[in-house]
Design a protein around this nucleic acid. Structure first.
Length: 408
DNA sequence: GTTCCACAGGAAAAGATGGTCG
DNA sequence: CGACCATCTTTTCCTGTGGAAC
């Protein structure tokens, strides 16, 4: 008889290691908080808000500090009758233009059922809808645009919004923009006029040091993990790994959480260092599968071409050979093949996603070219492919060949 | 020293798709 | 319906690259 049994050896409150958890206090960001508060001061004073631009790698506390401070601000502002503050928060990760961000803003302001479609209107129409929604809201509105770098160079909204008042689009509402970016280069590529306004106040969040990450992990582990749920040294290991890689608290916390899950599944009574190792490869695997899910048919076929070559032990492999392999796969799947330039684009994308790696070859008269190979375990690539392509026969053949060559 | 191979990757334009509006 | 609109993928055309061969 199957039976559910509650396991509580390790986790006391796993959510405290999760993405959405808001700790009661933010560790190791005192200087940033001070500067940030200074930038937000005009709001409580009743003046027009500053535009703020935050940048730093993922997981260094930008979003956490923003959420935390805006909560405090919204609380404190209730003491002043003449300030009416609204906070509008949008994650732009999946919105890759000003247009889509504007649509998203309009839709969060509108009641359910009155949302507008994400395409079809001229850009200015959407902006006007946004202005009238903002005007209806009134008071001071702080708009948080998280992961704003995903809009690339289509930054018209960032030009328009800060100027909305002086251009007469907004009469009463005061708007402040808070842009958050993981990408240092994003600021550079912005229109200089946008830089001037958006980056009135700039805050840089540096990566965490290993010792800082240890402190953060300790304070979270206190809430999340039982007293004996964690070997000594595990927190240090997670902190060290994350510090060496990205300096990201997110990564350190993910490692700890996954390591805990691994330990739990093994029926161990505490997290040990070898669990962290497993968690690390699991984290990597998740990242790859995430990337593969987003691929188009031809992107997948291009990847399958590399997989197929890998099964035959003929990687690394240059573009031309991969293109031939790709054409053969298109043939057998009844798909029209693309031009070589396009396949080259797909290979390039796959390289960006970290699924492929490429070595540059300079062989003079025979040209400069890349040699591609899988940058992920063969088996995880095949498994992920099997889920998303209809080429069962081909994938089986590739598996057979791989087995013959004992590729794993 | 110059040329030239055979590729990388930028830019622009063309199509396809899925939407609004009068 | 037809005129527009935004966006994504793909094609076309192009420039850049660095050492071997001339």
């Amino acid at each position: 008889m199957p039976r559910f049994e509650r396991k509580q050896n390790i986790f006391r409150n796993k959510d405290a290691l999760g993405e959405s958890y808001q700790p009661e206090r933010i560790e190791e960001r005192d200087d940033e908080i001070e500067a940030y508060m200074d930038a937000l001061q005009p709001i409580i004073d009743g003046w027009e808000p500053n535009n703020v631009f935050l940048y730093g790698n993922t997981g260094v506390g930008k979003t956490a500090v923003t959420d935390f401070l805006l909560d405090v601000l919204q609380e404190d502002v209730t003491e002043y009758d003449d300030v009416d503050l609204s906070v509008l928060s949008v994650n732009c990760k999946t919105l890759n233009s000003s247009y889509q961000v504007a649509v998203e803003l309009v839709n969060t302001l509108r009641p359910a059922g009155a949302e507008i479609s994400t395409t079809g209107y001229p850009q200015q129409t959407v902006f006007k809808k946004l202005y009238s929604e903002l005007e209806a809201l009134g008071g001071t509105v702080v708009i948080v645009l998280d992961e704003i770098d995903s809009i690339g160079d289509r930054d018209e909204l960032l030009y328009e919004l800060p100027r909305a008042r002086s251009n007469g689009y907004l009469e009463t509402t005061k708007v402040g923009l808070i842009g958050i970016s993981n990408d240092f280069k994003f600021r550079e590529q912005l229109d200089p006029r946008v830089q001037d306004t958006l980056c009135e106040r700039e805050l840089q969040f540096p990566p965490y040091e290993a010792s800082e990450l240890t402190n953060i992990l300790e304070s979270r582990a206190e809430v999340a993990i039982t007293e004996d749920g964690c070997d000594g040294g595990v927190l240090n290991l997670c902190a060290a790994l994350a510090a060496r890689d990205s300096g990201s608290a997110r990564q350190a916390l993910d490692l700890l959480r996954l390591a805990g899950e691994v330990a739990e599944n093994n029926d161990d009574d505490a997290i040990r260092e070898h669990h962290v190792d497993q968690a690390r490869s699991k984290l990597e695997q998740e990242r790859v599968e995430e990337g593969m899910r987003e691929l188009t048919t031809h992107g997948r076929l291009a990847l399958l071409a590399v997989v197929s070559k890998a099964a035959k032990e003929s990687t690394p492999c240059r573009t031309r050979e991969l293109y031939q392999e790709y054409e053969a796969l298109c043939e057998s799947s009844g798909t029209d093949s693309l031009a070589q330039r396009s396949v080259h684009n797909h290979l390039s994308d796959l390289r960006m996603l970290g699924i492929l790696s490429a070595k540059e070859n300079r062989s003079g008269s025979r040209g400069n070219y890349y040699s591609y190979e899988l940058d992920v375990p063969f088996s995880s690539a095949v498994d992920a492919m099997a889920d998303v392509l209809y080429l069962d026969d081909e994938i089986e053949t590739i598996r057979d060949i791989a087995r013959m060559n004992s590729v794993v």
